[in-house]
Each structure stands twice: as structure tokens, then as C-alpha cells.
Design a protein around this nucleic acid. Structure first.
Lengths: 275, 275
DNA sequence: CGTTTCCATACCCCCACGGTATCGCTGCCG
DNA sequence: CGGCAGCGATACCGTGGGGGTATGGAAACG
């Protein structure tokens, strides 16, 4: 199977429409239809149920969409990492914008002080995006937060664990309580984060994808959030925090793709575990 | 980057010889040379140092060899799993031949008794081969043994932990001791297992790649081995066992590729954790 | 200095991929 | 009920690129 075929298949599988997929791919519809039929013939597998009115994935097609995306990511990663290996020897670290600020600063300082350390580019990305960056080679290493981010397929080292606090606009009735339980927050407008594929679950709270956005919504009284306690250092006095006793503990981990064990990466991980 | 180009590159990188690589690929040498040059031009990266006498990998080439192999495995996995998804709904479980016999039997029985279970094909493979099978889609799930096998990149659940015993031919002087330490075995012909790439470390002991082979060598007095205690159930009375107090504990885990979460696989994993 | 051993270059051919035109099916609306 | 619009499949054509053979040219070796 060629990556071109995979890209075509994924495009069609994503919008379930040959015409639109073809436009996205910058080609005409007939050769795309043909390419997919050929792929099906070569695999000996039907990938789509087609009526002249609608297209849908078969069982096998669903498998190929999942596995094919992973494969394309791996190919892209190979390409990008090769390019980077030749031009600069630095590392790219991905982290959620607004989260892990303190630990990130300490890590960068500690690593920079090591003998033989290389330049570290920091990519601050939207929630949940780190995994994708790590998988397709745009990043070499990432800071993730359990239990929110998935570490599936990566090697990890735990860095720190902390409890969570609720964030209220100053003056909110609950903000004077010494502590809370999750059940106290059940009826409040908790924000909804996008899942790995960028889709939001249906629900009541506002949709957010980074911390700045969230803090602003809280200040405006449009949202309440539960965040790791370390976020306090970034808050002004227009937001009050209250410990939430039964919120899950948040673990910050450093994660990297399991095979890539360069000297520079090993040094960074070592520096991280020694924090 | 197309998988064809990657396959060409990996072939050349593996034997560092354009002529031989071309033969292996079933093509002539000139088009292969050209394909590699094109790849280098498109990537903007030199992958090989060539003199007209010898070929060697550059830094970037080394990266592409590692990442490219992973990418090719992922593509192959996508293809194989898609094929299998369409023809039969069963699972393929990989396990070392000769190891984990008892736990494997119990697992298969327990899972088969579940409602809605599917057929499970068992692939008994050589030591260290399970990871490759899991990565390239020939298996859906595998039994691995820590700390020997690497679980890098897989999701795992621990199944059992056991201590190790030394195996001697009947009548060996050490076989009557109540217990031993690793240092007692330092001078003895411990066998050498192949690493993930099938290469044996240099050393004194005999090269082995499965348990039958090993047991025969022990019976013949040509080797001594340290194995998990559960192997006792498979031994005849021509082999004696002695506990080794400071040998590392062996953990049997069930491992699977992190994204593939089919209903059938989830059932098997559940059955395994309940053993 | 001839010979051998490699990889690169030159040149040719053909297939496969992409484009345009069109067909055929199906659901919708007047 | 018929015309139409939407969409995928089919037919046919042109070209670029991937593969083949022949050969060049550099380096090691006797």
C-alpha cells in the first residue's frame, strides 16, 4: 500500500463524499474514485458502502481509517525528524499553553545548565494537541497531564502530582468555602474541552480550548473550572480558588515516542526526572 | 514520502550496498540509485556518505532508518488488520514458544467461556519476535515477559509475577544446593538470546532462540539457564531446578497496540486481568 | 597499469496516474 | 409522474515518472 493511496482513502473516509474529498486533495473526482476501487481490489476488501446517494464506511474501512491515520502520522514523523536531524540538532518540546508553566521553566533552566545540552524549541499548543504533535514528528517530547491526556503509545516518566482547586470569579458565593466536593459543582457551568479529534462532547458548559480563554470566561462569570493547584501562580485577584477534596489527582508526565532515544532527548528526560 | 521510497531506502540502509539491495528488491541498480538521490533531493537531506568504494549512513540517514522502519511497520499493520477485519473477526495472540504455557492455557479457556468471545489464533514465535508481530499487524495482542521483552509503545496489563530458578542437567554438582545466587552462576555457560533485531551479543554461552532448543542443550550438559519458576511444569526428570534468590522477578504482561480497541480485544484483556 | 568493483549518468520505453467528457442511478420537487 | 440535480462510475486520452539496458568514471588491488 502506498501512502498516496492511504491519503486518498483517509480523505474520502473523513468527509464520506468523493467530490469534496477530491477538491480537498486538489484533484478531480474520477481518478479518486478509481484509486479507491483499485485499493479495494488490491486489498480484496470493500472499504465503503456506496449507494449513488450516500457513502459510508464498512467495518474494514473503519479499521483502515484508524490504522491508516497512525501509519500516515508515522511516515510524516519519519520525514520531519529526518529533516530536522540534518539541519539542527535541537529538540522540540510540546506543552499545553498556560499549563505546566512553572515546571516547564524549571525544566528548561535545569537542562540548559547541563553540559552538552542542545537548544530546545517550545511549542505551546491547544489542549490535547501534544499527542498528535508527538506522533507526527512535529515534537520530540511533550509534557502531558494525567488523567486528561492519553499517553497511549509513548514512553513516560512521572514528574509531579498535585491536587486540584476550583476557580471562581471573585465574589462568587462558593468562593468563601474552605473546601468543596465535586458534587457541589455538579450544577455549575463546567467548561467542555475538545477530545483528541477536536470534537466537543455535547453538554451545557462553554467550549474552550486553552487556558487564557478559560480564565477570561471565569472572570466574566460565564464558567467555573477545576484545575491543578499550580495554576494559582498565574491568577490575578479577580479569581478565587477553593480546594476540591475529591477531584482526581493530576500527574504531570514527560512523554516521548518509544523508539527515539537520541542523546539530547535522554539528557532532557534525565534533567526532568531530577527536578 | 511514498512507502516505495521508504522501502528502497531501508533496503539500501540495511546492507549498505546498492547492487545487493537492488537484487533483494527485484530491480536493477540504476533506478534504485536514482530513487535514493531523488529522495535525498526532495528531503533536502543527504542520507548516505558514498565513495565509489563504500556506502555509509549519515546522521540523518540513521534517523530515517529507525523512523522509516516504524512507519513501514505501521503501514503493513494497517493493511493486514484491514484484511483481517473483513474476512474473520478473530484475534491473533502472539506468545513465546515454550513460555507462559500454563497462563496461556488458562487465558484461552477463560476467554472462550465468555459470552460473545471470538476465535483466538495463537502464534508461538521466537524470543523477542512478539513485539515485531504486534507492530506490523500480524498479531493483535501478545504475552510478554518483563524485564526481557520491551513494552515500548504498547498498552499493557500485568498478569503475574514470579521468581526464577536455575536449570541444571540431572546430577550437576550445583543441582543439590537448596538455593543459589547469580554470582554462583557467573562462570557457567549461560545461553545468549537474540536481541530485537535478531543479533546475538558476543560472548561465551551457546546461541538459542527458543525453549525446546534450550532445554535440549541443558540436558546435554552444554548450557545452564535461569528461567521463571513456572517452567518447572514442563520439565522431565532429566533437568533439576534450584531457586536463584537474587535473580530479577519476571512479570508476565498482556500487551496490545495502543489505538486498537476492538470489542473482542477488550474482552480478551478483561478475561486476562481476571485470571 | 590493467582489472575489478561500485555507484552515477545517459537514454529509452511503457504504464499508471490524472484530466475531461459522459453515463447511470436515485431522490426530490413541481 | 417527469424533469432535474447530485453524485459516483466508466470511457478515453495524454504525459510524466519509474524501471530497464548500456556505459562512464572513480577507487582499491595485485
Amino acid at each position: 500500500m502506498e501512502t498516496r493511496e492511504l491519503r486518498y482513502f483517509v480523505a474520502v473516509a473523513e468527509d464520506l463524499h468523493f467530490g469534496r474529498a477530491a477538491t480537498r486533495l486538489g484533484m478531480a473526482q474520477p481518478p479518486l474514485s478509481r484509486a479507491i476501487s483499485q485499493l479495494e481490489r488490491r486489498l480484496g476488501v470493500e472499504l465503503f458502502h456506496r449507494t449513488s446517494r450516500a457513502v459510508s464506511l464498512t467495518e474494514a474501512g473503519t479499521v483502515l481509517l484508524r490504522e491508516g491515520r497512525a501509519a500516515l502520522d508515522a511516515v510524516e514523523a519519519a520525514e520531519r525528524r529526518t529533516r530536522r536531524a540534518s539541519e539542527n540538532p535541537g529538540l522540540v518540546l510540546a506543552s499545553k499553553a498556560g499549563a505546566a508553566g512553572e515546571i516547564l521553566a524549571k525544566l528548561l533552566d535545569a537542562y540548559a545548565a547541563e553540559p552538552g545540552s542542545v537548544a530546545v524549541d517550545v511549542v505551546l499548543c491547544r489542549v490535547g494537541e501534544q499527542e498528535k504533535l508527538l506522533r507526527d514528528g512535529r515534537a520530540d517530547v511533550a509534557l502531558l497531564h494525567l488523567p486528561f491526556d492519553s499517553t497511549a503509545g509513548f514512553d513516560v516518566e512521572e514528574l509531579s502530582t498535585e491536587s486540584q482547586v476550583a476557580l471562581f470569579p471573585a465574589g462568587h458565593p462558593l468562593s468563601t468555602r474552605p473546601h468543596l466536593r465535586m458534587s457541589d459543582l455538579a450544577e455549575l457551568p463546567l467548561p467542555r474541552w475538545p477530545s483528541a479529534d477536536g470534537v466537543y462532547a455535547p453538554g451545557a458548559g462553554p467550549e474552550v480550548h486553552d487556558h487564557t480563554q478559560l480564565l477570561q470566561l471565569i472572570t466574566l462569570g460565564r464558567a467555573i473550572a477545576v484545575l491543578p493547584e499550580s495554576c494559582r501562580t498565574q491568577l490575578g485577584d479577580d479569581i478565587a480558588t477553593v480546594p476540591v477534596l475529591d477531584a482526581p489527582l493530576v500527574t504531570t508526565v514527560i512523554a516521548w515516542p518509544p523508539h527515539s532515544r537520541s542523546r539530547a532527548l535522554a539528557g532532557l528526560i534525565l534533567a526532568a526526572t531530577r527536578l
